[in-house]
Every structure is written in C-alpha cells, then in structure tokens.
C-alpha cells in the first residue's frame, strides 16, 4: 500500500472527531434540550474507524448504503452537517426534508443511498445498485454496512448469494459490535466468526479486521474495493464496539456488559489515530486541538442552522408520494 500522506491522516482525524462530536450533540439535543424528538436515534460513536477507513478507500463515483446507524457515514461521505442535523430535528432543510428522520439520511448527490430501518432491508438494494453499476458497464463499487444482527435474517443470505452468483461489485462489510439491541452474537449466531459466512456463498472472505484501527480498516477496504472493482463481491468482518445504547430507548446499556465498554474505550479509534499521528510527526498537539475546535464549530453551526430552519408544511406532507402525480389523499 502506498504511504499515506499526512493530510490524509489529518482528514481522517477530522472526520472521526466530527462524528463523535456530532453524535454527542445529538444525544444532548435528545435527552436534555429535547430539540431532537421521536423514538429512534442510533449513534455511531465507537464505530468511527470502520466507516472512515472503509469509505476512505472509495472514489466519489462509488456508492454507500447502510442501516439506520447512518449519521456518521453520511458525514464521512461529505453530506453537510447542517442538512443532517436539520433532518434529525425534522426540518424542511433536512436531507429528506424532515420526512425521513434519523434512520433515513440519504444524499443522492454524494452517492450515499441512505440509511434503512428494516434490518437487512438495504442489502438486496445494494445488490441491485451493483447490478446497475455492472449493467451500465461502469467501474463503480457499492459498499454496504451490515450489522452483526442483520447477518441472521433472510435478506443477508439472499442478497449476498445473488451478488456472488452475478459477480457484482459489492463490498459487504459487517460491523460486528458484538450485539444487536441486547442479543449477543453468541446468542444469535451458530457461527460467531461472521466473515466465515462468505464460505457458504463461495464469496471471497477477507477475514476479521480490527475495526478500532483506521489503518487496518483502510488497508482491508482498499483490498476489498480493488477486488470488487475487478472481480466480484467480497465480505469483511470489522470488530468494533457501540459506545452508546442501541438507540435512545436503551437506558440500561452501560450496566449490561460489565466493564466491556471500558476495555473498548481503552482502544478508542480516535485515540489510536491521534497516537499514531503524534508519534509519527512532531508537535502535532496544537494542530489536533485546532481540528477539534474547527469541527465543534461545524456542529454548533449545524444546530444553529437546524433550529432556525422552517418545519415542513402540509404541502410537504403529501409531496413525493408518487413521481409526477399530485396525490389526492382520501
């Protein structure tokens, strides 16, 4: 692998810090000021290196699709924090005009095809996107994030089998954070080394990757993307950990798994990257602090923007039910 430039490392650091701050702010807006409402909001904190490393291996023309834990990936893809925050608050200026909410952030212009809230539901969509890319004879690849829990539903098996059968340019990445809601992988999967599922499909298995380490993630994803572009689908399992509860309704998370969280926080993905940067280059502390201050401003501004944005109205309520047809609600 070609040596990484300093700017790349700093950009990764910026993305990871931005995600963490954005998610922390979302939690604050939900639990304290109650500016974010509703019942669903799933934070990406802890997973940052998986998303940043994986998406770092892509071209702008490549595609990304994921489940409901989607804010972080949207930010990495370059979707504006303003539009994401506005969607969190259900505003007209949000990525989905306030009609999608936290679980349905998408931006067509960034080839970010969205968050999807039905577990596994986006996986055959990824197969279909890759089919489109291949049908049109492009060199695009499609990266799909998959929860460990999602590997047990039928969509996973059907989508990956079809992807292999047709040699589609899919990069399938399992974000194994060890638990789906409250169910541990040992309690949900006969084969807990989830990358081995690839064997059943005759798919290239790139094994288990340390998802806390953005370098390892980037390296694995680069290999995967190159393979998918040329040959066909691959499966990677990234081991990582969810720092917050499953979603905002999950209040007992910290207590459930004892000291496990602490052990993972000791290998925090942002600290691992920061440590690497400060070891490799001299006198970086001030620069890293400056990045943090910069991203905090982005988050502050997004809250400001979203708070001052208009709410969707009754015309928006009935818009875009169908393409090209005014919709008469009964």
């Amino acid at each position: 692998m070609a040596a990484l430039k300093k700017e790349t490392l700093l950009e990764w650091y910026r993305q990871m810090v931005l995600i963490r701050q954005f998610e922390d702010r979302c939690a604050d807006l939900y639990f304290n000021s109650k500016k974010i409402t509703g019942v669903y909001m799933h934070l990406y904190s802890g997973h940052e290196a998986v998303g940043v490393g994986a998406l770092g291996a892509l071209k702008e023309t490549d595609h990304v699709i994921t489940a409901y834990r989607d804010h972080g990936l949207a930010l990495i893809r370059g979707v504006s924090a303003d539009a994401i925050m506005a969607e969190m608050m259900g505003k007209r200026t949000g990525t989905s005009g306030g009609k999608g909410g936290s679980m349905h952030i998408a931006s067509r212009q960034h080839n970010f095809w969205g968050g999807y809230a039905i577990v596994g539901g986006h996986l055959p969509l990824a197969t279909g996107l890759a089919l489109g890319a291949r049908y049109n004879n492009t060199d695009e690849v499609v990266v799909s994030m998959i929860g460990d829990g999602a590997t047990n539903n039928g969509y996973f098996h059907e989508a990956l089998n079809m992807s292999q059968l047709w040699d589609l340019p899919n990069v399938w990445i399992i974000e194994n954070n060890l638990v789906g809601m409250g169910t541990r992988i040992e309690d949900s999967s006969g084969q807990t080394e989830l990358h081995k599922r690839a064997i059943a499909f005759g798919m290239k298995d790139l094994g288990r990757v340390d998802g806390q380490d953005v370098f390892k993630m980037y390296e694995a994803a680069s290999e995967a993307v190159e393979y998918a572009r040329k040959s066909g689908p691959v499966l990677i399992e990234a081991l990582t950990y969810r720092y917050e509860g499953h979603g905002v309704s999950d209040k007992t998370f910290d207590k459930r798994f004892g000291d496990e969280l602490k052990a993972w926080e000791a290998r925090d993905p942002i600290n691992i990257l920061a440590h690497h940067i400060t070891t490799k280059y001299k006198n970086m502390d001030a620069e890293l602090e400056a990045i943090k201050a910069e991203t905090l401003k982005v988050v502050d501004a997004s809250v400001e923007f979203a708070s001052n944005s208009p709410d969707p109205d009754l015309n928006d309520l009935v818009a875009n039910v169908y393409v090209g047809r005014d919709y008469d609600v009964i």
């Binding site: 539901g121 055959p124 969509l125 197969t127 279909g128 996107l129 089919l131 489109g132 049908y135 079809m162």
Partner: peptide
C-alpha cells in the same frame, strides 16, 4: 444481461429490483 434467472429468493428479487431501479434501470 437483460434476462436474468434468479435463485428462489423473493426478498432479494424484490429488493435488488428496487436497488436497480433506484440506480436508473
């Protein structure tokens, strides 16, 4: 390329068709 036999995978037939349609096919 234009006539695709699929496995017996109704979830994926439906879902992949949605994805391909979103893509522009």
């Amino acid at each position: 390329r234009r006539v695709k036999d699929t496995p017996i995978s109704e979830m994926a037939i439906g879902g992949a068709a949605v994805g391909a349609a979103m893509y522009g096919l």
